[in-house]
């Protein structure tokens, strides 16, 4: 896989381009003319204070919200994403900040929700789904044991593991992770970091929303910072320090030297 940095330098067509995206809720502009892009094998961090509009922006890409204005291109082609099914058909998978799990169902049912494995007769194949679920959880969170209880009986971190499993199981090309490690312990967080490296190496493009600047510095190739619904700027991680990013988040100004 070619290095995403080289791809960008060559002017290759990005995997995802979100251009001039705007969306407002009852007069409040939650996202205001924001443009971001993503190349294969690249991790782009989205940073910003609470309520900056990060989740809203990526929900436009995942089909949860419909934008008021703007354009989304995938591999250079304009696409219409009007619901989550459209997003899935473009191989976009999302880990939502709220996790979006059906609390009354078990881990396997949540993992396959909307894409159940079925028997030749068209009936859902719970045994096969549970077996697959055990496999993927074995990779993501080897301590996970609670396969036969509703996910409401799981801890916050265990629930998060289920949400992560759901996003990575189905061969995503574009992965959106909205604070994927918010509820995880240090060991599990480290495993997610390794997972991101693996997915990146496999050529998957990842939007990563994270409040931890250190994690962003470590995992991302670029970072886009938002404030009050607007884009402050996008920087190359190699060109900035932790403090540069922090001041972008807090002051809402792009450092002079680091134009990406």
């Amino acid at each position: 896989m070619t290095d995403p940095k080289e791809l960008r330098a060559q002017g290759a067509t990005p995997l995802v381009e979100m251009e001039d995206i705007s969306i407002s809720f009852g007069g409040i502009k939650a996202v205001d003319g924001v443009s971001v892009d993503l190349h294969p094998g690249e991790v782009v961090g989205l940073l910003g204070h609470n309520g900056a509009g990060k989740s809203t922006l990526i929900k436009v890409l995942s089909g949860a919200y419909q934008m008021d204005a703007g354009e989304i291109r995938i591999n250079g082609n304009k696409v219409e994403i009007t619901n989550p099914r459209d997003a899935r058909s473009h191989n976009i998978e999302t880990i939502y900040q709220t996790l979006a799990l059906a609390d009354n169902l078990d881990a396997a049912s949540n993992l396959f929700l909307g894409r159940e494995l079925v028997t030749p007769m068209g009936l859902v194949n719970d045994a096969a789904m549970e077996a697959e679920c055990r496999k993927i959880m074995g990779r993501l969170n080897p301590n996970f044991r609670k396969f036969n209880v509703p996910v409401s009986a799981l801890s916050g971190g265990q629930r998060q593991s289920v949400a992560i499993a759901r996003a990575v199981y189905f061969n995503a090309k574009i992965l959106i992770m909205d604070e994927p490690t918010a509820a995880l312990g240090p060991h599990e967080t480290q495993m997610v970091a390794e997972l991101i490296q693996q997915l990146k190496a496999a050529g998957i493009g990842i939007f990563l929303i994270d409040h931890d600047v250190h994690a962003v510095m470590e995992l991302c190739d670029r970072a886009s910072v938002m404030k009050n619904g607007q884009l402050v700027g996008t920087v190359d991680i190699d060109d900035v320090t932790d403090d540069d990013l922090l001041s972008m988040i807090i002051l809402g100004k792009k450092p002079e030297k680091a134009a990406a």
Partner: peptide
């Protein structure tokens, strides 16, 4: 044992999650 049933229970458990799962 059917998808319809699975979706009914998923929607009852969390309508937003069901919608976001493409149901």
């Amino acid at each position: 044992r059917t998808r319809l049933g699975r979706y009914i229970f998923a929607t009852g458990g969390n309508p937003d999650a069901a919608e976001l799962s493409g149901i």
